[in-house]
Amino acid sequence: MSKEDMVKEAVEEAKAKAAKEQAEAEETVETEDAQGVEAEAKEATEEATETEGDSEAASEGKKKFFGKKEKKDKKDEKIEELTDRVTRQMAEFDNFRKRSEKEKSQMYEIGAKDIIEKILPVVDNFERGLGSVPEEEKNAPFVEGMEKIYKQLMTTLESVGVKPIEAVGQEFNPDFHNAVMHVEDEGLGENIIAEEFQKGYMYRESVVRHSMVKVAN
Results as ranks from 00 to 15, higher is better:
T83I: 14
E32A: 15
L82Y: 08
P164K: 04
H182G: 06
G145F: 12
V180E: 04
N125P: 05
I149A: 02
H210V: 08
S211R: 02
M90A: 04
S55K: 03
E137A: 11
T156S: 03
S206L: 03
D84R: 10
K151F: 04
F197R: 09
K20N: 06
L120V: 08
T83Q: 10
Q89K: 10
G111Q: 12
M212W: 05
K8A: 11
G36C: 12
E158T: 02
A58F: 05
R204Q: 04
K148M: 03
G53C: 09
E158M: 01
Y201H: 03
I192W: 09
F126A: 09
A179Q: 12
L153P: 05
T49I: 08
D175Y: 06
E195L: 02
I110V: 00
E46R: 06
A14R: 11
E32W: 10
S2Q: 15
R97L: 02
A23S: 04
E186C: 04
N217Q: 01
E101D: 10
K17G: 02
V208I: 10
E186A: 15
A48V: 00
G161N: 05
K3F: 06
E205M: 02
A34L: 06
R88K: 13
E186N: 14
M202I: 03
Q170S: 07
A39S: 08
F126Q: 13
P164G: 03
E137S: 09
M181C: 00
V143F: 03
R85D: 05
D5M: 09
R85P: 07
K104P: 04
N95F: 07
A216C: 03
A91Q: 06
K104Y: 11
A34P: 06
N173R: 03
P134M: 13
S2F: 08
G111W: 14
K78F: 15
A112Q: 10
M212N: 07
H182F: 04
M212V: 14
T87P: 02
V207T: 09
G36Y: 15
K98C: 07
M1R: 14
Q198C: 04
K151T: 10
N95V: 08
N173K: 00
A91H: 06
T156Y: 05
A44I: 07
A16P: 11
E32H: 11
T87D: 13
E21Y: 01
F126G: 11
K8N: 15
S211A: 15
A48N: 02
K62C: 13
E195S: 07
G187N: 12
Q89P: 02
F197I: 07
T51S: 01
E109K: 09
R97D: 11
I116P: 11
V7K: 08
K72A: 14
E80I: 07
E195Y: 01
Q152V: 10
T83L: 10
F66R: 15
N173M: 01
G169Q: 01
A216L: 01
M154K: 05
A112K: 05
E109P: 04
V133L: 06
